[in-house]
């Protein structure tokens, strides 16, 4: 159990709903769900989820902390926004799903081999380094996500595409070394640090 997870368990004891309200992006909306199931019916990924959104909301109210946070359901969200468009109560369901996924990841409870989670982390790390996505590095990182030999195989399969992109100047080998970024990457890091501080302070301030 990560330290943060331990701390949160201590802090909220029985009320997982309050924990979600305090720590999850848009988590305050969870209590407003009226269990109509329109989100579940609207989700194009519906059949592949273990728990559809309305069920996740119910599990939160029922205090099923482990089950919710270690579930891969919210990682299945493709951000199509069908549920948000249709929710009669106006819950920002897509955002709550991302919020829950993010929180589960922060606590170290998210399923380790979940591909969406892996990609999201690689993307974030890549982006926050210089403030610009380094597509070459991100692409290679994804190739080798599932091991060295697998990476070589994928790279060879895409050989022709890569060469064409180089020819058309859509990709540059130079990106391998440093790569481009925002003018003031230190400033960017400061912004991100501050944002995280605000987020945590908000969670601390939250009262039921």
């Amino acid at each position: 159990m990560s330290n943060l997870n331990q701390a949160m368990v201590e802090k909220y004891r029985n009320s997982f709903l309050q924990e979600v309200q305090a720590n999850v992006e848009e988590g305050d909306w969870v209590k407003m769900c009226m269990q109509c199931g329109v989100c579940a019916g609207s989700c194009p990924m519906g059949p592949y989820w273990e728990h559809p959104p309305q069920e996740i909301f119910m599990m939160i109210r029922a205090g099923k902390r482990e089950e919710v946070l270690s579930s891969d359901s919210m990682w299945m969200c493709t951000s199509c926004y069908n549920c948000i468009a249709r929710c009669p109560r106006g819950l920002p369901i897509t955002h709550i799903m991302h919020g829950l996924a993010h929180y589960a990841d922060r606590l170290g409870l998210a399923p380790k081999e979940q591909p969406t989670r892996k990609f999201a982390n690689k993307f974030w790390d890549n982006l926050t380094k210089k403030g610009r996505v380094n597509e070459l590095k991100l692409g290679l990182a994804l190739y080798f996500m599932n091991g060295f030999f697998e990476g070589i195989k994928v790279a060879l399969a895409n050989q022709k595409l890569g060469l064409n992109m180089l020819k058309a100047k859509r990709m540059s080998i130079a990106e391998m070394f440093g790569g481009h970024g925002v003018k003031d990457s230190n400033g960017l890091h400061a912004i991100l640090k501050k944002a995280r501080e605000i987020e945590l302070a908000k969670a601390d301030e939250f009262k039921g």
Binding site: K31, M32, M34, Q35, M58, R61, R89, G208
Partner: peptide
């Protein structure tokens, strides 16, 4: 009124 209850933190279990 139902929403009002939910906003005040009344939970509803089917």
């Amino acid at each position: 009124f139902y929403r009002g209850g939910q906003e005040k933190g009344v939970t509803f279990t089917k």
